[in-house]
Design a protein around this nucleic acid. Structure first.
Lengths: 258, 258
DNA sequence: AGATTAACGCTATCACTGTTAACACGACGA
DNA sequence: TCGTCGTGTTAACAGTGATAGCGTTAATCT
C-alpha cells in the first residue's frame, strides 16, 4: 500500500536545485499541485472523498504538509474552491460590454448555472455549506461580479428595485435553481427551469425593453396556457370523456402549455 | 452537563415487563426518544454535533442501539428530518380552502421560509445535502404539498405555465432564498427578499386577478365550462395541433361545456 | 566561512467518527 | 428444562482532522 517515498523523488521536489534564485519557490508549486489533486478528488468522489490523508497520498506527500500550507482543512477547501471557480471563469469571456446590460446579466446567469451543473460538489461547497452566517470567499467573488452587472442595468436606468435586493434575488434564485436541478437525477431534470427562473426575475427586477407603453406585450401563448392548465388540472373530473379521450386530451393540453 | 444516565432509568426502558403483549413496545418509545434528542442536538450544534456517540449518551443509551433502530446514521438523520418537518407542519393549519388559491400558495411560501429560518440545520439537511440525484423523503413531502397548491391555482384557471415547471420554480426559489438568507449573518439579512421573490414568481406563474379584458378566463373554482370555453374561442390559434386534432378537441370541449 | 533560523519531510500520536463483532442477561416458546 | 431471541453493554476496527516532535536541509545573518 504505502510504499516508502522516502527516496528522492527527484521530479517532485527539486526545491534544493532551483530554489535559490527562483522567486517562485517550490512551496507554491506544491501548493498548486495539492489544490489540483484535491479538486480532482472532489470532482470524482464528492466531498467525502477529500480527506487530508487521501489528498496527501494522492499528491505524493503527507498530511501535515497540508496543514503547513493551508493551515486547516477549511483552508484547503477554500483554496480548491477558488481554484475551481477561477479556472471555470477563465475559460469564458469574463465581460463583454454589449449594448444591452440585461443580455450581459443573462450571460452571467447561464454561466453560473453551467458552472453549478458541471461542478456539483464545488457548487454545493460554495452555496450550500453548512455554516450559517458565513459565505466562502469564492461565493463573495461571484456575488461581486453579479453586482457589477446589476449596476450596469441600474446605470442604464432600467432597474426597478435597488441594487442590493436585485443582486440577492438573482443570487438566491440562481443557487436555488442549480440545487433543485442537482437534487434530481440527471435524466429527470427540467431544462426549462433556469430560463424560466431568469425570465421571472428579470421581469420583476428590470423594466422592459420596449418600456414605453405601460404594460407589455404579453405573449399570446400565455393567455392560452391558463385555460389549458385549468383543464389539465381537472382532467380526472371530465367524466363526459372516455379514459382514452382524457389521455389524448392531456397530451394536447401539455403541448399547448409548453 | 452530562450526568451519567447509566443507572436504571426505570421509567425509560421497561421492555422486559410489557414487551410481550403490548403492541407498542418500548422499542418505539426509545426510537422516538432518540429522534427527539438527535433533533435537539442538531438544532443546538449543527450537523457536526450529531454523532452516534453524542446522540446515544444524550439519550441515555449506547451507540449500537442507534444501529439496531435506524440501521444507519443516514436512517437516523432521515428520521430526525421527518420528525422535525412534521412537527413544524403540525403547528400550522395545513390547508385552508380560502377563496384565493394564490393566497394559499403565499401562506405555504411564508410557512416554508419560516421553517427554514427557524431550523437552519434541518433545512440544510433537507435541501442542501450533498448527494446529487437524490432528495430526502421529507423534501418530497413538502414538494407534494406545494404541488397541490399549484394544482389549485391551475384549477382556478390562473396558471400560465404547466404545473411541473411552476412547482419546480417555487421550490427552487424558496430554498434558494432561505439559503441566501442563512448564508448571511442574521443582522445583515434583507427581510424583503422572500416577499420580493414570491412576487416575482407569482407574476411569472399566475395571471392577474383582473386579466380579464379579453376573453379568457376566469373561472370560479368549480366551473369547468369557463376554461373550456376560453380554449374553444381561440381554437384556431392552436397551431401546435394539427387541423384534425383541433377539430376533435373542439368536439370534446363542446361536450365539456354542455 | 561559519552560525543561526526557518522550513521541510516524516513518523507517531491524540481524540473522535461511523460501524460492527462479541459477550452477558433476561424473557419467551418448545 | 433448554434453546432462542432481543436487548444492553463493552470492545474493537478502520478512518478522520489535527498536532507534536524528530532529523535534515535550505536560506539568511554576522
Amino acid at each position: 500500500m504505502e510504499e516508502p517515498q522516502t527516496d528522492k523523488t527527484p521530479d517532485d521536489a527539486p526545491t534544493g536545485g532551483d530554489g535559490t534564485s527562483d522567486g517562485i519557490s517550490g512551496r507554491d508549486r506544491m501548493r498548486a499541485h495539492i489544490v489540483e489533486v484535491a479538486a480532482g478528488l472532489l470532482a470524482a468522489g464528492g466531498r467525502d472523498a477529500v480527506s487530508t490523508r487521501a489528498v496527501a497520498t494522492a499528491a505524493g506527500t503527507q498530511a501535515p504538509t497540508i496543514y503547513r500550507l493551508f493551515g486547516d482543512k477549511d483552508g484547503l477547501l477554500a483554496a480548491v474552491l477558488e481554484y475551481g471557480f477561477s479556472t471555470y471563469l477563465a475559460d469564458k469571456p469574463p465581460l463583454d460590454p454589449t449594448a444591452d446590460p440585461i443580455m450581459d446579466l443573462r450571460a452571467g446567469w447561464d454561466l453560473h448555472i453551467g458552472f453549478g451543473l458541471a461542478n456539483p460538489a464545488l457548487f454545493l461547497l460554495m452555496y450550500a455549506d453548512t455554516r450559517p452566517g458565513r459565505r466562502p470567499a469564492a461565493a463573495e467573488a461571484g456575488l461581486a461580479i453579479l453586482r457589477t452587472r446589476i449596476r450596469n442595468i441600474a446605470a442604464a436606468g432600467r432597474l426597478r428595485v435597488d441594487e442590493d435586493l436585485a443582486a440577492e434575488l438573482v443570487q438566491a434564485a440562481g443557487s436555488g435553481a442549480v440545487l433543485a436541478l442537482l437534487a434530481v437525477p440527471e435524466d429527470r431534470r427540467d431544462p426549462r427551469l433556469p430560463d424560466a427562473m431568469f425570465d421571472a426575475l428579470i421581469t420583476a427586477i428590470a423594466t422592459d425593453h420596449e418600456t414605453a407603453n405601460g404594460r407589455a406585450v404579453v405573449a399570446v401563448n400565455q393567455d392560452l396556457a391558463a385555460p389549458a392548465n385549468a383543464l389539465r388540472a381537472r382532467l380526472p373530473e371530465l367524466e363526459m370523456l372516455t379514459e382514452g379521450e382524457r389521455h389524448v386530451l392531456g397530451e394536447w393540453l401539455a403541448r399547448i402549455t409548453h
